[in-house]
Design a protein around this nucleic acid. Structure first.
Lengths: 156, 156
DNA sequence: ACACTAGTTGCAAAGATTCTCAACTGGAAA
DNA sequence: TTTCCAGTTGAGAATCTTTGCAACTAGTGT
């Protein structure tokens, strides 16, 4: 056994002890049952850096538990989206892609040529949104702001 | 021939002379070819009050020209959405429903209890969006801002 | 009016997403 | 721990949406 693996194990334990229960507790509080498929899907979403679509999530999931079905992936994504735990990006007719909602909310700028998703955040805009909603007699539960753009300096 | 039909014809002419060419010219300016299927679909969208889905639009279209295909309806909806000429509402897993965009661009506040859609517009936000995109090196082609909220004064 | 070509169309097939339903299970209550 | 049942799941059918391709056509230029 090599030393490096010890640190790996410690990191995994930290992860298991701190991170996972965090959002599972959150979800239970919201009345969501933590089932085996859901736990696996949540882990995938938590540990990924990219914005996978349902099929990609499904493939990663069946490597952990090959009994999970694609329907369940879709159902779980819809559930988590409604709860605000993930965001859905529908790009250019292609399949929806998902991303875990970080503690901090952020908005998206989508490159319509490449599909790249850039995250950004603007307190000014958030504040304006609150003002507008209030003036319409509403309280904002969540929002979605997507800018679709094209690189300024790209070679024609 | 009855008198009433004369007024019908005049109304139709007014419509043909004023309304239709309006947005057709707009679209042509944007480099969109006005084909027979597109003209029919545009007419349907213009003259409807509800938010039909693709299948409903298709059925109305084939009553006018039964050679139109469902694919073309979908393609046209995607095209018009990209141009900002219509808005797509994906409600609760069901099929997408469409609505003609008024001349002015507007954003949406969606009541998460009733599903009601309220339109609004804020130059300040639009301006901020442009600034943000520019600072990220992008030019905005279009955007989508949706606030999901709940009435402030609703009885608990 | 005619020819030309890039953009569109219809169709059928593929791909993405939701639905139906009988079997299963998380977690509350005893 | 065991029971119990509302909520969840897997499988596949159904529905919704996009795509590939050969035929067609709007709009430009002659």
């Amino acid at each position: 056994m090599q030393l490096v693996s010890i640190w790996r194990i410690i990191a995994a334990m930290k992860h298991a002890l701190n991170h996972k229960p965090d959002y599972e507790k959150e979800l239970r509080k919201a009345g969501v049952r933590i089932t085996r498929p859901r736990r696996i899907i949540l882990d995938i979403l938590t540990s990924t850096e990219d914005h996978p679509d349902a099929m990609k999530i499904f493939h990663r999931a069946i490597e952990i538990d090959n009994s999970i079905s694609l329907s369940t992936v879709y159902r779980t994504m819809n559930l988590l989206e409604e709860l605000g735990a993930i965001h859905r990006h529908a790009f250019n007719g292609g399949p929806s892609r998902f991303e875990q909602a970080h503690g901090e909310h952020h908005d998206h700028l989508i490159d319509i040529d490449t599909g790249a998703v850039i995250e950004f955040k603007s307190d000014k805009i958030e504040k304006l949104q609150l003002e507008i909603a209030k003036s319409l007699g509403y309280d904002i539960v969540h929002h979605r702001l997507e800018l679709y753009g094209r690189k300024l300096d790209r070679p024609s």
